[in-house]
Design a protein around this nucleic acid. Structure first.
Length: 727
DNA sequence: GCGGGCGTCCTTTTT
DNA sequence: GGACGCCCGC
């Protein structure tokens, strides 16, 4: 590949901070790879180069390119090889640092990582059993999001008190403190902690110095998506040698809801006022028409860096608009188009990507694809790890690895059933709190726990024996045979068979087999190490990462967020309706602009053909609703668009729903004529709202109330006239 | 104590 | 429409 002048400039500037603006498909990965190659060519030690990406996919791609260029091979634990540049995702990099140096902040390196549901179960138990509060008023998910917010703003539990300015935050403060204690006791970290603790570790001068010397050349991709802790960590790592290159695109910033903060770009310029700025503006993928239309949409944003994205691809294929009467016809049309081009042109189904705003929207499309007999695959993040059988087995592995992991112990102690019931567990917990011992210590001396009858003691003793045996075996067995051994030892297969229908049983066996496959890639490491490496990586693993690109003949379905980084010949963007995309939760300017960037990302996934679709009538929220056409469709000049011609116009409504089923869109209920009695509403009352669903009141002064949605923002409303109902 | 049945609460987006 | 929690009957 021949680099263009700006790419060339980015490649050659290796001893200076640089800021690279890279628009969609400007070959930034290729540029970065050339830069690495060039560095090595100037005798820079490869292992002192660190490149960080957001997704496993991106890091895999970069590794492949580097392998090719340098003619070398990456292996699973790349850090063992001293002669390769480090290419990592943010999360695996932080975990690597923690594995090596978490002792600097007095934690044990056998820590485990808790996922979202582990986290919620801890928070729930704190709210219920420790604070004796009603989990319906103090919703665990909501409290969890407060805590997550705090962590990403770098507010530690011990400092949270200073920020308490409302009743709810008082509760959050208590939960936060207790939650962190529990994590510490369990030797566990949650996702946010991975960042916070890494930063803490790097505040140790000796450790920091070690990494500054280790990685003298830093490259960060997708910098617009970094959040505060990530920014701080990168700043620390780069502060000594100042060889930091960051790549970003403001138009593709779609993670502000995860605290990604574009101000980090401004901070970068402040930290490195002498930084060189380079723009990569040539798009090497899409046709001019798609690029023009995408530019036009994004230019409606008020915060937007002027783009002169251009391409030399001169084909002017129009964007096709499927303006369907019903959701069923929308999906059927998509299926037909795919089927037709597959049949007529004998092309692979793998050319097609179907995008939607939220995961739940895949269903209607799946049905149509199924009807046409088109093979497809829905990509759901973390779905693999979320499955019960996988969680069960991984919980066993986690406990073997870290016996302090109480959450996992609780998960497995009665799975399969050992008749160790919740009351027994409660007694164990009380005992543990009273005598300050670990579960394992209790198990060892179970006969001293007088609160338990001999039957329960015996059951636990048996469980403990199993555990000991598994731990013993983990020292000698490679990780995939350890899994075999666990399954056999706990009679897991029989448990599944009893517990499920034959079909489900088959599906679960499939998943376990898949887990086996994943684990067996770690077999060549020594047993303990393979267990620990596998556990870290499985948690970060997703369906998406297992997907071999274009190797199979199926249509791919995913959310737009997931599609970032990918390119397909033919792309369908579906459900283009107001309230859905843009989402009804994102109607404020700031959020709306992020939705628009999301549309930009979606459009630029297409290389050759782009289809956009909406339906006049769709079955949604257990009703038939009509939503107006998305503003994003209107924002594309009609000269770029042609309308899809439906073949059998008269058949629309025989396929569709009868008119009487149709109801008013619940999102667009006109302001209520009924005046609410203001005195009926109290703080902490839960109310329903036709547009925003379920809320609770967090403050009230006469008729003006602040109402908080469970996971998102606070809205001010006048209770008297707002269409709210007490529930 | 367990499991089935019924009521409640939901659905952004993900490392 | 489905997941999950809770209640009540064995």
């Amino acid at each position: 590949m021949q680099l263009n002048p700006s790419q060339e400039q980015a490649k050659n500037q290796i001893n200076w901070p640089i800021l690279i603006l890279a628009w969609a498909w400007s070959w930034k990965t290729a540029t970065l790879t050339s830069r690495i190659e060039y560095m090595i060519w100037t005798w820079i030690n490869p292992s002192s180069i660190l490149a960080v990406t957001f997704t496993n996919k991106a890091s895999k791609e970069m590794k492949e390119r580097i392998s090719k260029k340098l003619n070398i091979q990456y292996q699973i634990n790349q850090y063992k090889n001293q002669n390769l540049p480090f290419v990592w995702t943010f999360h695996s990099l932080w975990i690597f640092i923690l594995k090596n140096h978490i002792e600097a902040i007095d934690m044990n390196k056998n820590f485990v990582i808790y996922d979202e549901s582990d986290k919620l179960s801890i928070i729930k138990s704190i709210i219920k059993d420790e604070l004796w509060l009603d989990e319906k008023k103090y919703i665990p998910r909501s409290i969890a999001s407060f805590i997550s917010n705090a962590k990403n703003a770098l507010i530690l539990a011990k400092d949270y008190e200073k920020y308490v300015d409302s009743h709810i935050k008082e509760i959050v403060n208590k939960v936060y403190l207790s939650y962190q204690n529990k994590l510490l006791e369990n030797n566990a970290l949650d996702f946010d902690d991975i960042l916070v603790k890494t930063l803490e570790v790097l505040k140790n001068d000796e450790v920091l110095n070690y990494y500054q010397e280790k990685w003298k050349y830093l490259m960060i991709d997708e910098y617009q998506d970094t959040n505060a802790p990530q920014y701080e960590i990168v700043k620390l790592l780069a502060s000594k040698y100042r060889n930091l290159a960051v790549v970003w695109d403001d138009s593709q910033s779609i993670y502000s809801w995860r605290w990604a903060d574009m101000r980090n770009i401004l901070n970068f310029k402040k930290d490195y006022p002498d930084a060189l700025e380079i723009k990569l503006e040539q798009n090497y993928r899409s046709t001019q028409n798609i690029i023009n239309a995408a530019n036009e949409v994004i230019s409606k944003n008020t915060i937007w860096i002027k783009k002169t994205l251009f391409t030399t691809n001169s084909i002017w294929e129009s964007i096709t608009y499927i303006d369907a009467p019903s959701d069923r016809i929308e999906s059927q049309t998509i299926a037909k188009i795919i089927k037709k081009s597959a049949n007529d042109l004998n092309e692979s189904y793998a050319k097609n990507l179907i995008l939607y705003r939220t995961n739940s929207q895949s269903r209607s499309i799946e049905e149509a694809l199924m009807m046409e007999g088109i093979p497809y695959k829905v990509i759901w993040w973390l779905k693999f790890y979320d499955r019960k059988e996988i969680k069960d087995l991984i919980a066993y592995l986690k406990v073997i690895h870290n016996p302090n992991d109480v959450v996992s112990i609780k998960r497995i102690i009665n799975t399969p059933s050992r008749k160790i019931w919740p009351t027994t567990l409660k007694k164990l917990d009380d005992y543990r709190d009273e005598f300050w011992v670990t579960y394992l210590q209790i198990f060892e001396n179970i006969s001293e726990v007088d609160e338990l009858n001999s039957w329960a003691q015996n059951a636990i003793k048996k469980f403990y024996e199993i555990l000991l045996d598994l731990m013993e075996n983990s020292k000698i067995k490679e990780v995939s045979s350890l899994l075999d051994y666990i399954i056999q030892k706990i009679w897991y297969d029989e448990y599944l068979k009893d517990d499920t229908t034959p079909d489900e049983y088959e599906a679960r066996l499939e998943n376990i087999k898949e887990l086996q496959n994943v684990l067996s890639t770690y077999n060549w490491l020594d047993p303990r190490e393979s267990l620990s490496t596998a556990l870290d990586e499985i948690l970060l693993l997703t369906d998406f990462d297992k997907k071999e690109e274009n190797s199979n003949n199926y249509v791919t379905l995913m959310t737009i967020h997931t599609s970032k980084w990918l390119e397909y010949d033919r792309v369908f963007i579906t459900w283009l309706e107001e309230w859905l995309f843009p989402s009804f939760r994102s109607m404020e300017l700031k959020d709306l602009e992020e939705e628009r960037r999301l549309m930009y990302v979606a459009m630029t996934r297409a290389k050759e053909e782009l289809y956009i679709s909406r339906a006049w009538e769709r079955f949604q929220f257990w009703n038939y609703v009509t939503n107006p056409e998305s503003r994003f469709v209107k924002e594309i000049d009609t000269k770029y668009i042609k309308n899809y011609e439906f073949e059998i116009k008269n058949n629309f409504f025989t396929n569709s729903f009868s008119i009487k089923d149709h109801v008013e869109n619940p999102f667009r209920v006109k302001k209520s004529l009924i005046e609410n009695d203001v005195d009926n509403f109290e703080i902490w009352d839960r109310v329903s709202h036709p547009k925003f669903w379920f809320w609770s009141i967090i403050s009230k002064s006469w008729d003006l109330a602040e109402i908080k949605f469970q996971t998102s923002g606070i809205k001010k409303m006048n209770i008297k006239i707002a269409p709210v109902k007490k529930i």
